[in-house]
Design a protein around this nucleic acid. Structure first.
Lengths: 218, 218
DNA sequence: CCGCATCCTCATGGATACTG
DNA sequence: CAGTATCCATGAGGATGCGG
């Protein structure tokens, strides 16, 4: 790979830059948050260290990734350039497209709760009816994500320590089902733990409110 | 390649299906129009014949592509399944992202005017102010595309023989510049040929009308 | 002709060991 | 910790063959 398609076509030229194996997954990790080399290795199970180094160099010369110096000390942090960050749209489009593939469940695949940051962003965009601002935590495994809704839109990220109006705990596949609209909170009684302001959680995952006849837990 | 990432992540699973080299370009060709094997070879300069056969089989078993029998006779025609056609969104997102890469111009790359069907669709979506319905032809090299605008949106395809309100002729890079909003019709005096209803063309490429002080040709 | 399948060569990816 | 270096398996690319 790394060989150019040699076609004057937007898709072909885009793939010349990000079409090589692992490249878009590196972008995924950096869309979740800037990261150090070691964190990238951990967030990309299966990648070979030399490949990661090669890809980071290629993406840097292409203008997608940049190396920064960490605030504390001399550590290197990789982050997306502004143009690289614009890959959020195509990446989230692919995540939406993959819904039928995710419905099979995890199988034996690796899983990292951080990946849900992008999936939630992709699946909930434009769907959450935010009548009021709130910040909801999503706890999966031992990771905590946060979902902020405002009148102007929503934003998903890793938890940054701020106060949460509510916390939901559930398996990844449940969270994905809720976000994709395949499941409702009422469908998943007993599989989802809610602490705090349940109404805030419903605003995110179940805007139309409880179903006629559905019971509300807790 | 063709090796799975083994990650329970929408992006990784999407790339397991369409991330292999050539796969998304095959999808591109089929988004433009269903095609026969020979047409795919011609629209994918550089692909090896065995690779194309392999990829088509993989995409078929994955449920992205299907083989159909041509109306006349026993020829095989490849087309996208409904799920495969939903790749239009991620593909057009990547095309929008690639705008800086296309601004360099064609260089020595292959070019096929059909590819503009997707680029125009990606770049003009939501931008054309269609006060009235019209059908405009775009002539590049010896190919003719058509662009239909209605109040409900727009649609780009290969010309299907219907009557055209106007025909624009220009180089690919000019057409792309116009579609991306980097160029206006007034910028490109002498580089764009317009026959027929010029107002219909402006509705597509230059909704805000001629610039203050800009002159109108013909 | 069209629609592939085979064969061969070489670049690329994957795994592991190693180094500043 | 942040990468290189090395070796080997795999996959891409090109030419060619072959049945319908």
């Amino acid at each position: 790979m790394s060989r150019s398609y040699g076609q004057y076509c937007g898709l072909a030229r885009a793939l010349d830059v990000v079409g090589d194996r692992w490249n878009l997954l590196i972008v995924r990790q950096l869309l979740i948050a800037p990261a150090r080399y070691r964190e990238l290795i951990e967030g990309l199970p299966g990648v070979a260290t030399n490949l990661l180094a090669d890809r980071l160099r290629e993406l840097e010369t292409a203008g997608v990734v940049e190396r920064r110096l960490a605030e504390e000390g001399n550590a290197i942090v990789y982050a997306l350039t502004p143009w690289g960050a614009e890959l959020r749209e195509p990446v989230e489009s692919l995540i939406r497209w993959s819904t039928p593939l995710m419905a099979r469940g995890p199988g034996g695949d690796h899983f990292c709760a951080d990946w849900l940051v992008l999936a939630l962003s992709a699946l909930l965009a434009g769907k959450t009816a935010a009548r009021r601002s709130s910040t909801v935590g999503i706890a999966v495994d031992d990771r905590l994500l946060q979902l902020r809704t405002t009148r102007s839109g929503m934003d998903v990220s890793l938890h940054d320590g701020r106060e949460l109006d509510a916390v939901v705990r559930a398996d990844a596949s449940i969270v994905l089902g809720l976000a994709a609209g395949v499941l409702t909170l009422d469908d998943t009684l007993g599989l989802v733990d809610i602490e705090g302001d349940e109404a805030a959680v419903r605003t995110v995952f179940n805007p139309q409110g409880p179903r006629p006849g559905g019971s509300v837990r807790r």
